[in-house]
Nucleic acid binder design. Sequence first.
DNA 1: GCTGAAAGGTATCCTCG
DNA 2: CGAGGATACCTTTCAGC
Lengths: 152, 152
Amino acid sequence: MNFDNIDKKLLELLQADAKKTTKELSQKLNLSVTAVYERIKKLEREGVISSYVALLNRAKIDKNFVVLCHVKLVKHNKELIAQFENEIVKLTEVLECFHVSGDYDYILKICVKDMEAYREFMVTKLTSIEHIVSTHSTFMIGEVKNTTAYKL
Amino acid sequence: MNFDNIDKKLLELLQADAKKTTKELSQKLNLSVTAVYERIKKLEREGVISSYVALLNRAKIDKNFVVLCHVKLVKHNKELIAQFENEIVKLTEVLECFHVSGDYDYILKICVKDMEAYREFMVTKLTSIEHIVSTHSTFMIGEVKNTTAYKL
DNA sequence: GCTGAAAGGTATCCTCG
DNA sequence: CGAGGATACCTTTCAGC
């Protein structure tokens, strides 16, 4: 799909605030309400906009302890990978999990309450998944940037 | 702030789909529309819900090349750190940047179109920031999980 | 903190340039 | 592709429990 400047601006606005009314958007874009409405519907239909979500403040919900955990598997055959990934998806503490190139196989972003909760998570959940040969935890000491918005 | 089970369920629903109407939510929660409305307003007022955003599909907007880049600075005094972080925030290709413990100082999640775009980013943007002594790029070869929703 | 009803604003659709 | 108007639905407020 191709985006003109209005689409780009529209996506920028919706990525910043999904609660803006089409009326407000139409004013910022110098378009009619209907035109904006149809552009949004098209972007949704095409799957460019995948969802609208509420973002929470980690600090207010006891999830302010963030760890980036590098994981290495014993082997890399299709079955083991599928099994591992299937388990990871279920873990609510894991917000992001990327299969990566390099020394480690996966990088996980884990959010829990504190170090104690992380210890508990490691012992009872992560390392109970089979096929993991090693992990390396890197603790977040500060969040410089964390956005969901892409610049088109 | 303290959350009862209704708040938790409400936050779960809003994190999954911010476009649900208070009417729909009230049915799922067995509450009146007004009660749900007031709970949401309170969660917004307290800053638990920080924003509502549209999430885009990376694959549809030419941002499907994801790199986790580890960065190490020369020194770690307050001034250099502030200067580095100030520059990073401006880079639209960087969606996440965490100040971390360990061998490297920062871990960045970078989304661009392809390897060529990444090369361009590294050469013209990232490494043009001063005080970086070394970087290590880890390429994403698969996305296992990527959510913005915390489980309360 | 909850409910139900009332008022005003929006989303959505339709017809027409 | 975009505009404007009609309608159903939603958000938001208010009185009362």
